[in-house]
Design a protein around this nucleic acid. Sequence first.
DNA 1: CAGGTCTTGGTGACAAGGTCACAGACCGCG
DNA 2: CGCGGTCTGTGACCTTGTCACCAAGACCTG
Lengths: 217, 217
Amino acid sequence: MSWVDNFPGLSRLDPDLRRRLDRDGKVLKVPAGQVIFGPGSSADNFLVLISGTVRVQHLSDSGRQIVLYRINAGESCVMTTACLMAHDAYSAEGITESAIEAVAIPRATFDDLVARSPDFRSFVFEAYSRRIADLFLVIEEVAFQRIDIRLAQKLLDLAGQGDRVRATHQQLAGELGTAREVVSRQLQEFRRRDWITLSRGEIGLSDVPAIRALAEA
Amino acid sequence: MSWVDNFPGLSRLDPDLRRRLDRDGKVLKVPAGQVIFGPGSSADNFLVLISGTVRVQHLSDSGRQIVLYRINAGESCVMTTACLMAHDAYSAEGITESAIEAVAIPRATFDDLVARSPDFRSFVFEAYSRRIADLFLVIEEVAFQRIDIRLAQKLLDLAGQGDRVRATHQQLAGELGTAREVVSRQLQEFRRRDWITLSRGEIGLSDVPAIRALAEA
DNA sequence: CAGGTCTTGGTGACAAGGTCACAGACCGCG
DNA sequence: CGCGGTCTGTGACCTTGTCACCAAGACCTG
């Protein structure tokens, strides 16, 4: 039983290629809140996440921030890979949101696997496809969607199955690429409608159906 | 002499792989203003541009539009490729801005070249890197940059070496992902400062240094 | 040429969102 | 308890987006 079994896209690989992955890939554990890549740091590896999540965000010169996408367990950091391949500056940074386990696959092994395995190739290209779709969605939302709707979506997203969100207004603003004041005001409006309850660092969702209705408007 | 010679990234290929590209790649000519890919149409080819440019844009439900990037001669449509590989809907459309010549490389040939040639792999990954950087830039601009600065940049960009831009206000709005009225008002402001002259379908740049100063602010 | 129609551009009024300034509430800690 | 740091609330103001409508130019057709 090796980490490779956690990846649906990789489990079909040839036995000897799997052995190669097992042998060359180094398992890393990183605690929460660490910057694992960003402008400056150029790790020379293809990273694949076994557990935990990594938030990828962009910081503007003006100090504002936007979350581009999250890398979840079973996914890989293809974006960084492309930039590393092209020896290019990657203008986003990746931060661990929880403690993570990841496998670092050296560039040479990555290249070899791409060359030898159609399954590995489709693993890589599917990962690209998902990320690009994520970026398109971010552009669509930032350019054309109302902030109240985006905030409602984000609250539901961050709450998951539960009914509360642990985040400061500043953090929510960073998720959406807007300003803290805007989030504060929208949350006030939601509270006025009795959709949520507010306390320091936490938001309780008391009328999920109403929030969902707005999010899907 | 074949089209392959036009591509710096491909000219280093092995002679027999180049022959394979020559044999399997079909040269297409498409007139200006055609939609060559978009939601619905899923061409099963890796496209590479010999001449002309293709504008890739996204249409929102609300009828607004934004230009994501342009594919120039010597570049390829990697984004579509990733989505095709993953059998995924591509939510942007590509439109020829001029008459183009392109080479369509069948999926099987593409896959084979990725497997066999390190040079072809780096051609593909570099193309990804460039596109991803473009998308990051779009997100940064839409989310954080003022519209007057973006409009100034776009005017300089579209003017190229010349001092005039042939475009309607509506088209400029589509470039920037904003509304036509916003562009009209900003252009009025620029004219009030004697930076530009306005006529139907055309903008003359009379004070390029001033426009550049704003664009670089 | 007159009249109709479509495209393009201009503008006022208003709504939504971003910026700035500042105040008050809460938190942990000595 | 008092103090500094973080988090939240809010008013004023500016920029951007939306809506409604009009006018000028282009183009077509009888």
